[in-house]
Write a protein that binds this DNA or RNA. Structure first.
Lengths: 193, 193, 193, 193
DNA sequence: CATGAATGAGTGTTCATTCAT
DNA sequence: TATGAATGAACACTCATTCAT
């Protein structure tokens, strides 16, 4: 039915790619496993053979994506040199949103859901990614209360994520650098320092 | 099943309140009309009698909520006096998030969805609310490109919304003023000016 | 799709009748809810609206059937007069098997299943029906150990049930009385006394 | 996945043993080939390599089991000496139920199923085993109508089987001899003679 | 206005079966 | 001989929607 997969693990990846794309557009609940399978070009049974359940598939996507995201954020931080850390983080997040807008939308849509289900995966996303921003804020102003640092970190994160999605959805002609400049301009001098 | 409603429109309101609460927790697709009816304490048929369909119910909730939100944002702007406009907007948005966290979550979860369905309602939210922020940014820096003003506006909006949700979910002991101060601190002096 | 049901509760009864008939033929697992609904002449959703789940439907059938069966066995016992109690029981069981062979097969097929699921209902069948036979055995020979009375009771029960099913499946021309005579002949004088 | 089988046919036997055990507990339809393979410690493909299909596996189990059972019943009959034939049969059946309760349950559960599928195998069981009992009844009372002999034979068979299962499920402390005595007591003097 | 029994298309999941290795 | 990844038809169950009352 599908062209024979040349690479081992191809089925696995096809399914993940299809799922991310569809969930980004319609949300988790509104995306059916049928659609995922069809988009991936595999049989529905293959989704279950490879992931066990729809929820597990989503959890795996979330975990994998967030691991990659935090890793790239930390790498950007390490390579920041004398650029302000938060600027480096915002730039990298913007680049990630640009490169993988589907995953960015999934994060934006699900990260503040408080229902149960894959809550653990969501919690993980939140803690992992937010912590990087909070830490950068705390580093740049050691006098800040830790709770405030987390809130400030989430503000920078939210500003960048929402602006990034606005960019892609409504002003896709802008370049990464233009958007980054605009976002940084909206942020405090502490961020720009 | 429920005591007869003395007030006309009581059923209507019970249904909306129940729907907002449930949709905030589970999302639109994952919330069933059965649950809405049960939570509202009315028969399922009443939901259809009053709203026609599940999608219409959601659209009405969105429209009503966004109307209230933009009205309060504009009012805050008008009453800002010599306080910086964006600070007034952020403060008001924070207050709205605090007073109606369920609706705030719905907005956060659905606002960047690009699928069809109730897209029109969503578009409306986006345009209405974002425009207020973009306008305030444009006013505070007339030299700014309009596209950049929209992106910057969405950055301020995103910073405030995400920080507000972070606040409610993980640091609910903080007061509105503390959170506002922290968010403003993360934003540029242009915002604070 | 089906003729309008004249009687309240008609849907309920149609479903039960269809389910008993099909389960008797194919067994519980091999009978689909689709088939039950189609046979009953109702929509699949109606099965769930009325019974909640396939397992609950089965449990309800079992409970209802066993209640009717034990009631008729006890009635036969009370009306036995000076006929030997076990003969009266065997006769009544034979009559029930004849009148409702579908339910008899279900009992025969499922009563010694030890898996979980609707085990409680099965246990109930066993205890209720077997107890009537065990009690009759115990009454007819007070010196018998209670455990032996239960085993003997199950022997009489098994003899009658299996002979009854054999009768219906392979020698349907025989009359109830002929079969009862033959069964009693195979049983001890204590039974016949 | 499992250690390589040293003995030829080991896989074959492991699968049969696993299948009998599982089918006895859950029934045929509720037992999956996956479970059978896992319990047997072989790959799923091996079940198909060795048996062709799930139905064929079941038919083979039934055929093999019934062949063994009837052989042992006939042997017991031949070795009965001057003990009453039906007593010898009941004793042997009881011993078989005790030694292989899983298979006994399968027989009890499936023997009166009238659906199609493996009906032929079932028919075979019925005819083979029942015939031994019917013949013994006929021999002990040559005046009996052949149809009545079959019914009486099934009565003795049913009494013994059900009592045997009752024994194993609820009074496992009883010995074979105790149970046999109790069953024989419930049966006619013709049986005991 | 309000109800809730009934519906049937659609959902997540299972599973007997196939086949390239 | 044996494997296990892949399949797709079939399954139990859900749910938005309708309608007679």
């Amino acid at each position: 039915m599908s062209e024979t997969s040349a690479v081992t693990g191809a089925t696995h990846r096809q399914i993940i790619d299809a799922a991310v794309r569809l969930i980004a557009e319609r949300g988790f609940s509104a995306t059916s496993v049928d659609e995922i399978a069809e988009t991936a070009g595999v049989a529905k049974g293959s989704v279950y053979y490879n992931f066990g359940s729809k929820a597990d598939l989503f959890a795996q996507i979330l975990t994998e994506g967030i691991t990659r995201l935090t890793a790239s954020l930390r790498a950007a931080l390490a390579a920041a040199g004398d650029r302000p850390p938060l600027a480096a983080l915002a730039g990298e997040l913007l680049r990630q949103v640009h490169d993988n807008p589907a995953f960015a939308k999934v994060v934006a849509a699900e990260v503040f859901r408080t229902g149960r289900d894959w809550q653990d995966s969501i919690r993980l996303i939140h803690d992992e990614a937010m912590a990087v921003f909070a830490q950068a804020v705390a580093d740049s102003d050691p006098t800040l209360d830790p709770q405030d640092a987390e809130i400030a970190g989430s503000a920078v994160f939210g500003a960048t994520l929402v602006a990034g999605l606005e960019w892609l959805a409504f002003h896709p002609d802008r370049t990464v650098d233009q958007v980054l400049t605009t976002v940084l301009r909206a942020l405090t001098p502490d961020v720009r320092r």
